[in-house]
Amino acid sequence: MTALEGTSRQRSITYAAPVHKVSRRARVILAIRAFLTVIVALIMLIPVFWMATTAFKSRADAVAVPPKVFFKPTLEGFVNLLAERSVLAQARRQEMQARRDELSWIQRIALDAGTEIIGVSQYVGRLRNSVIIAGGSTVLAVLLGLLSAYAFSRFNVPGSGDLLFFILSQRMLPAVVVTIPIFLMYRRLGLHDTHIGMILLYTVFNLSLSVWLLKGFIDEIPRQYEEAALVDGYTRLQAFRKVVLPNALTGIAATTVFCLIFAWNEYAFALMLTSDRARTPPPSIPAKLGRGGIEWAAIAAGSLGFLIPVVIVTFALRRYLLRGVTFGAIRQ
């Protein structure tokens, strides 16, 4: 009885004032959890760390055994990645060396590796392709997915169960199985190696994900919100825009990130259905493996550069991704 009273008194104190003292037991548990989290995070981050450091290593450091943790960072990898170079003959090299001061810092890095920059590499164009294709297909998939998820959630769509399953089934076959028929169709339709072709393809694949994800989020928003807006004098579309959309932001953000990551990282379709104009980095980074020895630094730099845009988008949307936790005003 006294023990019970004790705890209840303690509780009333914690309600009244902000918590300053956490019990020792809770602190120890918290510390252990933090420690384990850090360990797991470290294990997961090692490949990324390795890639990031390799990107800044010189050719010799990149292949050193045992691997160097401390090294002199260089932008050689990035220069190799972004610039088209040619190997300098001995005489030309000495001539360049002589007027080193006139050269830009980029050219100097190339010169140190015994090469000369003769243009921008294909990688820049590939990255641009990725931005266009992944961006376009993500916007389309989320937009179309939102409208169809709303319809499935709110209206009595005949055969909605079968339709939803059909939409989901679009993602069931692995890419390798469907690439050949799609390849043949795309060649006939003139969609092979085009941006629009890749955007359409990724949109179809992502729609299944976005419809299902967004339907879940929209189902969570009580119908009464729209109904209130309807009697308050708004049309269905206005109610959707002013009431449903702001409350679905969390879901839209999550769906956007998922769709973007898929379209951004996609490898098999990109390998088979693009050759040059619409080729994206995933199939072209490994192509670096073959040319004149393995340029690990350039590959790592390419992967790192490829990673950054997705990280930026996820980071920009994190506010909405976390918002779901604190929003909590929906009562049903």
């Binding site: 009580p222 919100y225 209130a228 009697v231 308050d232 702001p246």
Partner: peptide, 28 residues
């Protein structure tokens, strides 16, 4: 359409728009 009937509806679970302040809800 509900919007053409000039009626007001009060819901059991209030149905206040959670992304708006009370003022914005009333002004809506």
């Amino acid at each position: 359409h509900p919007s053409e009937r000039n009626i007001a509806f009060v819901f059991q679970f209030f149905a206040l728009y959670p992304h708006m302040t009370a003022w914005q809800n009333i002004a809506f």
